[in-house]
Amino acid sequence: MKKLLFVSILAIGFYACDFGGKTDKPADKIPAEEVDLTPKNISYAIVSTFPRDGGNFTQGLEYAGDGKMLESAGQHGESDIRYTDITTGKVLEKTELDKAYFGEGCTQLNGKIYQLTYQEELCFVYDAKTLKLVNKFPYTFGEGWGITNNGKDLIISNGSSNLFFVNPETFQEVKRVGVTNQYGPVANINELEMIKGFIYANVWQTDKIIKIDPDNGHVIGIIDLSDLRAKTGIPPLSMFDEKAPEVLNGIAYDSAQNRIFITGKYWPKLFEVKFDN
């Protein structure tokens, strides 16, 4: 999504609510209005910190294996798809997009890399080994924001409260799931990552990550990372510096070593973190 000149962290209702109380009724006998859908607050801990290119307007982040990170950079004239070294932050290889395109989320599936574009309604497909463009698909669900996969389908966000499950070969929509919490639909679903069967998502304009049940779209957990900047020396949001670090954006999972990585737009650091869930 477009560059922010000023960001105000929103007080979104689903971040604080406790209905309290318990019931001894069997779960299948509890009236719908009595079911507590309040997401669980999930704590986090920083495991390691790594340097990275602070000039990358991070739109997509995914672990690529062998100590490499797959990243998608945004902004017209600055967009690319790249591999970086996790330890050093060095860019190992990249393919630049034409300046007419604004890169968004990315994911790797079956030897191919899929990269969305913001408002151009086009998905670029690359060979995962070479980062060479091999195909492109138009789409009709509006803007492209975040993308991940479940091993079969691509899962895409467009800034609304919907997640679109898409066939990776035809780019036809298979199904869509609405993301909801105890108050109703949750919009601004951004960068996505599938972790142990659940979808983790950045929520645009916040430094929070939500945990989503992909079967029904319910938000079952929230990780509040709003104190991460103070803990790690990431500069605060700025309305004057266009290259200043913006909101948290970027979640990656190394399933082989059970590691989670996060970063943000124009953030000069990559963090390995642990979620207590």
Score class of each variant (00 low, 15 high):
169 E>G: 01
113 I>Y: 04
106 C>I: 15
106 C>T: 14
155 I>P: 04
98 D>I: 13
128 A>T: 00
168 P>H: 08
169 E>K: 12
175 K>P: 15
151 G>K: 06
117 T>K: 14
158 N>G: 02
106 C>D: 10
121 E>I: 03
145 W>H: 12
157 S>G: 08
113 I>M: 07
119 Q>D: 12
131 L>R: 10
178 G>T: 15
141 F>G: 00
134 V>A: 15
143 E>W: 06
176 R>M: 09
94 K>N: 02
101 Y>E: 00
105 G>N: 12
168 P>I: 00
108 Q>P: 09
125 V>R: 05
156 I>C: 02
124 F>N: 13
147 I>H: 11
114 Y>D: 14
156 I>P: 06
117 T>D: 14
105 G>S: 11
136 K>S: 12
133 L>E: 15
98 D>V: 03
155 I>R: 04
102 F>S: 02
144 G>V: 01
180 T>A: 11
168 P>F: 06
164 F>I: 09
142 G>S: 09
115 Q>K: 04
123 C>A: 13
102 F>L: 01
92 L>M: 10
169 E>S: 04
96 E>P: 06
138 P>K: 01
124 F>A: 11
162 N>L: 12
130 T>S: 13
168 P>W: 09
132 K>T: 11
159 G>P: 05
121 E>S: 12
129 K>Q: 10
103 G>L: 04
129 K>L: 08
167 N>H: 00
172 Q>I: 15
150 N>C: 04
123 C>I: 09
167 N>G: 03
139 Y>W: 00
175 K>D: 15
119 Q>H: 09
179 V>Q: 04
137 F>Y: 15
148 T>Y: 00
158 N>R: 08
100 A>D: 05
99 K>P: 02
149 N>E: 05
175 K>S: 15
180 T>P: 08
175 K>F: 14
98 D>M: 01
171 F>G: 07
146 G>L: 05
177 V>S: 01
107 T>L: 14
121 E>K: 15
119 Q>E: 14
92 L>F: 07
160 S>V: 05
138 P>I: 03
165 F>D: 03
172 Q>N: 14
171 F>A: 12
95 T>D: 03
101 Y>I: 00
117 T>V: 12
160 S>C: 04
118 Y>A: 00
163 L>V: 05
110 N>C: 14
165 F>R: 02
139 Y>F: 07
130 T>E: 11
119 Q>I: 13
123 C>K: 06
102 F>M: 03
161 S>E: 09
117 T>G: 15
141 F>R: 11
165 F>N: 01
132 K>V: 11
123 C>G: 11
108 Q>T: 07
128 A>V: 02
147 I>V: 15
143 E>P: 10
92 L>Q: 13
142 G>F: 09
143 E>M: 13
139 Y>N: 09
178 G>E: 13
178 G>Q: 13
109 L>G: 03
104 E>W: 02
92 L>K: 12
99 K>S: 05
127 D>A: 07
125 V>P: 01
158 N>V: 11
174 V>R: 14
131 L>N: 06
123 C>M: 07
105 G>Q: 13
129 K>W: 05
161 S>Y: 09
136 K>T: 07
171 F>R: 02
118 Y>L: 01
101 Y>K: 02
152 K>N: 07
